[in-house]
């Protein structure tokens, strides 16, 4: 067990190292003149040289690389080109909004997906299943921002004064938190729920064909009990695994939803940094997102190996 955890931990570190090396390579090979971005259009040649020295850009590449990694190890993601603020601080300010978005939507899509999936599986090949499957297909085919834009349009034009609480600017205030987050949650959850419904339906169909389910039915247990107590419990394992991975993967990848609904999360930070050319911020969020993915995968793998010792075998 300990050996397995250590192996997985080392692997996670290798992934993080590879990703940081990749972004360093992007940064170093980039044709963009960083001192221009920092100094602005009116900077003189002397200013530009001074900026290069301050950023350490005049030093040999291996030294810059070593420096980059050493700073990352200390949790220092560098400073914004635009306002000089530490990227770590900028990201930390925005992280709660993104976590609120992802976790809230996660609850919705997990519940919705499982309910639709179980519904489809218990009515396999009948009208209810077909309707559920059509809904799933619609969810899988809808690009995230289309869903968000349509929701925004319908609610902002249709609701009048009542709708204002959905779209107030700035961070969501405590009183209007739910109202403010409902649409972003719905937009994100609708799309994710489709994949979960498909996954749950498949897992349920597999499990419902197993011997122990037949035994439970043969014992004369009510169908409801067989489906929810016996089958669903084991069918949920792959779905919960996916939830862990997705929640990790979505942190930082909710750029589109945050842009459409004006949520000041990490994704919005990325979007604003694109136009400003503020590469350190984008790289910082990319690295942070990788950490989330890697940690989520690690937790899921270790959790899985506790539940099912077979996965520990190489």
């Amino acid at each position: 067990m300990t050996g397995f955890v250590i192996r997985r931990l080392l692997y996670s570190l290798v992934v993080l190292w590879l990703v940081s090396t990749l972004v360093f390579a992007f940064l170093h090979l980039s044709p963009v003149a960083v001192e221009r971005v920092v100094g602005g259009p009116r900077a003189t040649a002397a200013d530009l040289a001074q900026i290069r020295r301050n950023l350490g850009l005049d030093r040999p590449v291996p030294a810059q690389y070593g420096d980059f990694l050493a700073r990352l190890l200390r949790g220092d993601l560098g400073d914004s080109y635009v306002n000089g603020a530490p990227v770590a601080t900028l990201v930390a300010e925005r992280l709660p909004t993104t976590l609120l978005l992802v976790l809230g939507a996660g609850v919705l899509w997990f519940t919705g997906g499982v309910v639709i999936g179980v519904y489809g599986a218990t009515r396999a090949r009948r009208a209810g299943d077909r309707a559920a499957t059509a809904l799933v297909l619609a969810g899988l085919s809808t690009p995230p921002f289309v869903m968000a834009l349509v929701l925004l349009h319908v609610f902002s034009t249709g609701l009048g004064e009542v709708g204002i609480g959905f779209f107030e600017a700035g961070p969501p205030s405590r009183e209007r938190l739910l109202q403010r987050m409902v649409l972003p949650w719905a937009a994100l959850a609708f799309l994710m729920a489709a994949a979960y419904a498909r996954l749950t339906r498949g897992a349920m169909l597999d499990v419902l064909g197993e011997d122990y389910v037949r035994t439970a039915r043969a014992k004369g247990l009510p169908e409801r009990r067989v489906v929810y107590r016996h089958a669903l419990r084991s069918a949920l394992t792959p779905v919960v695994t996916q939830l862990g991975v997705d929640v990790g993967a979505l942190v930082g990848s909710t750029v589109v939803i945050e842009k459409v609904f004006g949520l000041q999360g990490v994704g919005q930070l990325v979007h604003q940094s694109i136009t400003l050319g503020d590469t350190p911020v984008i790289i910082g969020v990319t690295l942070l997102a990788t950490v989330f993915v890697v940690v989520a995968n690690l937790l899921v793998d270790v959790g899985y190996s506790v539940l099912d010792p077979r996965v520990r075998l190489p």
Partner: peptide, 16 residues
């Protein structure tokens, strides 16, 4: 494991 969207954005800003 790479955050594809963010890597794509990084690439687009470093190589305009």
């Amino acid at each position: 494991a790479l955050p594809a969207l963010l890597v794509a954005i990084t690439l687009a800003t470093t190589f305009p």
